[in-house]
Write a protein that binds this DNA or RNA. Structure first.
Lengths: 173, 173
DNA sequence: GTCTATACCAGGATAGAC
DNA sequence: GTCTATCCTGGTATAGAC
């Protein structure tokens, strides 16, 4: 992976995330990356290939997240960490997550294996905690995380009070 | 508003919502609507004008929603209706809401006055109900609604159990 | 109000030199 | 690995006839 190759990846992610994949032209990416347009195609075959390379990158990072949460054995602790997720997104990953959420609406669910494992581990946590409907609870947590992550990624928010409200709902406070 | 004009609006909404604004060409819209391409520009000036017409339409409908909820005086009842919102989206408005959420990520917040009023009415409900931090609670409800609406719009879900979980968190069950 | 024809440009992609 | 030059398609938009 040369420096220019990395530049292309970075620029494309930034532009895809902020302006959308379809309205970002390859020439714009090239200019932003300080690179010739042709180079993009040399390295990534086509625009779709570039997008896939970016997604592959991000998937690895996000799986690391999920993995670290799933390793926690205590269900209460695991739920707690899960609810924290939207608030601990590293700011240098904001672009990726913006892109991720955008694509959900255009290219279907963006599912990958790591996410299914995670979903299941949430369900198990609720089972162990004796909740009445663990799988609905897991679905709710997922929706909640997505909603809160959206607020975090798109608006200025004050994390502390919001987090407090959430934890109180799950009697973790 | 002639029939063909309406056809254009319907087709554009469907295509914008499912494939994205930028990757939907005017010629595709024209074919889908059974109309000449030129007609689109006669009626809506340009593609952006077409999009705006669609959004204006949807805004009116959604404001009707919000308005009906805000009229409810009892705070508990109002909160209850609010939490129901994602589950009572008429299926013929799914396209609009899909488009709405997509655009949030590309063109900023999609805010309009009706939404601010609504936000405030939620905050007031939590005040009246004696919650510690009403404005954070309102923000949480908004995130929750968005997250749940996303599930409803993008996945198959079983509304009943999910709703039960939510109501239980707010002691409405 | 509506269609056909067409202008014009921008975007994705390739070829070939260095 | 990288750049320059270029091709070609298809997208937005306009003009003019009916």
């Amino acid at each position: 992976m040369t420096e220019k190759q990395q530049n292309i990846l970075n620029s494309a992610l930034r532009l895809f995330a902020t302006e959308g994949v379809d309205s970002t032209s390859t020439s714009k990416i090239a200019k932003h990356a300080g690179v010739s347009e042709g180079l993009i195609f040399r390295h990534f075959t086509n625009k779709e290939g570039l997008l896939q390379a970016i997604l592959e990158n991000g998937r690895e990072k996000s799986d690391a997240y999920f993995h670290s949460v799933m390793q926690v054995k205590d269900p209460k602790e695991r739920l707690l960490m899960t609810l924290h997720l939207p608030f601990v997104i590293p700011s240098d990953e904001y672009d990726f997550w913006r892109l991720f959420y955008t694509l959900k609406w255009q290219r279907g669910p963006m599912e990958h294996e790591g996410m299914n494992l995670f979903r299941n581990s949430m369900k198990e946590a609720f089972e162990e905690l004796g909740y009445t409907n663990p799988s609905a609870e897991a679905q709710l947590v997922e929706a909640l995380i997505d909603g809160v992550a959206t607020e975090v990624l798109l608006k200025e928010i004050y994390p502390k009070p919001l987090l407090d409200c959430i934890l109180e709902k799950y009697k973790l406070k």
